[in-house]
Amino acid sequence: MNPDQPVALITGAGRGIGKALALAFADAGHAVAVNYGRSAEAAAEVVGSIVASGGVARAFGADVADPAQVDRLFSDVLAWSDQRLDVLVNNAGITRDALALRLSNEAWDEVLDTNLKGAFLCARSAIKPMMKRRSGCIMNMSSVVGLDGQAGQANYAASKAGLVGLTMALAKELGSRNIRVNAIAPGFIVSDMTETLDQAVRDALLQRLPLSRFGEPAEVADLCVFLATRAPYVTGQVIRVDGGLHL
C-alpha cells in the first residue's frame, strides 16, 4: 500500500449507510477496510466496486460485539495498512424492536452489545495507532432516535444515546492528541431498515419532514467525509442529518 494514502475503517460496511461510507471514503482517496458481520457477499461487492474504480479496499469479517473478534479485526487491518489508521466510523448497528413491556433481556443485550459496546471496543483499538501519528478521526453513527426517543425502540434508542456520551468522553480524552470524535445522528434514511415501514407510517413521516423526503445514504456519508477531511476544528459534536425532522 502507498504509505501516503489515508486509511479508513468502516464497520458494518456491507449495506446501507456503511456501504455508502465505504464508497465515499474510497472516492475521497482513502484505502478502505470494509468490515462486515454477516454480509460477506455484500462486503465483497463493495470491495469489488471500489477496486474496479481504481481504489484500494479489502473486506474484513468480524462481529464487533465480540472483543476477541475486534482484536483480530484490528490486528488484520493494521497489518494490511502498515499500522496506519486515519478514520474509524463505528457504523455497525442492529435493531431488535419491541415495546418495553415485551422487550426481552436478550434483545436488550444484543442491541447494546453491537451498537454501543462494539463501538467502544473498536474505538479503544483505534486510539493506539491514531495516538502514534497524533492524528485521527472517529465517528459514531448515532441516530435521531437516540436524541428524541422512539416507541418500540428502548434498546436501540438507549444504545444510540450511549454513543453520544461515548463520543463526548472520547473527544475530551483524546483532543490533546489531535484525535477528533464526533457523532452523526441520521433521521430517516432510505435503507433496508426504512424499506420495511408500512405505507401509512411512511406517508405520515413524509408529512412531518420539512424537506419532504427521506435522506440518501450518500448524504450521510458525504458529511462524514467532510468531517474527516475538511473540519479539523470540529470535535465533540452530534450532527443531525435528518431533513429537519426535529423542527
Binding site: 480524552e173 490533546s176 492528541r177
Partner: peptide
Amino acid sequence: ADSLDTVELVM
C-alpha cells in the same frame, strides 16, 4: 507528563 502521556509511555 499528563495522564495520557504516562499511558503512552507504558505502552
